[in-house]
Design a binder for these strands. Structure first.
Lengths: 185, 185
DNA sequence: GTTGAAATCTTTGCAGTGGCTAGATTGCCG
DNA sequence: CGGCAATCTAGCCACTGCAAAGATTTCAAC
């Protein structure tokens, strides 16, 4: 890396972060299906094989994206402002809406490499944070709470919920809180 | 088409259904991301351009799959055995588990052509059936019920719910009924 | 410093893909 | 029987992911 922080020639210096960020951006723009490693490479200013070389293959890149997503989710759920089950649910929805590309990749198991150390670690961290925030009762309550927030986030992201005439406003966090309080308040 | 029902040469006879069925099979085996029209064409015994030619392009094929999915869902929700909100929720989950490829494509908006007549019609039919079955109260209750079943189905399909130690058994319909009755019984 | 090895990134080549254009084959209806 | 539209095919192009081999830089040992 040059003294001014730029990069040129060999040894990009921060190729890993650049590729992950580029992939997240591209996925957010056109979806996972249309993701092209060569396009990401062009945006990052590296050769077209650099991403696959660094992460093994395309699955490796998506695994890194998912691991970063689980890390962000774990942090969001463990924030001090989260003080109740409803708070945790709202935080879950807010995470999904703020990071749709991560959220999409995280739950597409066939695209990920689940023997990856980072993904396993961050995934478990998020799982524990979620369980700690949601588990008031038994496994049924936990499944119910997780299902509501996950389903609400998914339906909101696809545009299914706000578009069908149900008057829930345009703020997903507010709408999610209303929904959660109606059943878990 | 030959008298014995086989097909050869030009004029397959039922290319549309063959392609849709082949696409559903391929998606169920390897996911939407890995779907290849050429692979589907080979399985159907037609030329590699036949699917795209008949449906316009790849999006057209996926749109046909989604339309078929909404049709199946609408039928499932309108079945006479569905007599309560909980029944409808269980039917929703059963549909998702029985037709995972359809379910996946149906809610990936960026892969579909929403100006397609079939998709619009079947989509609205499913939406109305769902609303009729779920709407006991206001929009908040409807969003809550839909979110639970959709989230539960999604999490079950990705393997997130039965794998995390929550003892809900191995039958998604039974587990879904327990979850639904805990909040909507 | 010099040097050798390891880490990092690039170049090249290949099989596979989606979509476009033009062409071949068939059923149909007068 | 003849033409015509519908249906499917063939060939082509740009693009993709990946493997193998090469080029460049860093870095530690001496």
């Amino acid at each position: 890396m040059a003294p001014d922080g730029s990069h040129h020639g060999y040894h990009h210096g921060n190729l890993r972060d650049a590729v992950v960020a580029g992939a997240v951006e591209a996925i957010g723009r056109s979806g996972v299906v249309a993701l092209s490693l060569r396009e990401v490479a062009r945006a990052a200013g590296v050769s077209h094989t650099a991403p696959a070389h660094h992460f093994g293959d395309k699955t490796g890149v998506l695994t890194a994206v998912a691991a970063q997503g689980y890390s962000l989710l774990a942090d969001a759920l463990a924030a001090p402002s989260v003080r109740s089950l409803v708070d945790a649910g709202v935080a879950y929805v807010e995470f999904a809406v703020a990071h749709p590309a991560h959220f999409d990749v995280m739950f597409r198991r066939e695209l990920l490499r689940w023997d990856d150390a980072d993904l396993l670690r961050e995934g478990q961290r998020a799982r524990q944070a979620l369980r700690a925030a949601l588990a008031d009762g038994g496994p049924v309550d936990e499944a119910a709470a997780w299902s509501v927030v996950h389903g609400f986030a998914t339906l909101w992201l696809t545009g299914a919920i706000p578009d069908d005439g149900t008057d829930l406003g345009d703020d997903p966090a507010v709408a999610a809180r209303r929904v959660l309080e109606s059943r878990f308040g």
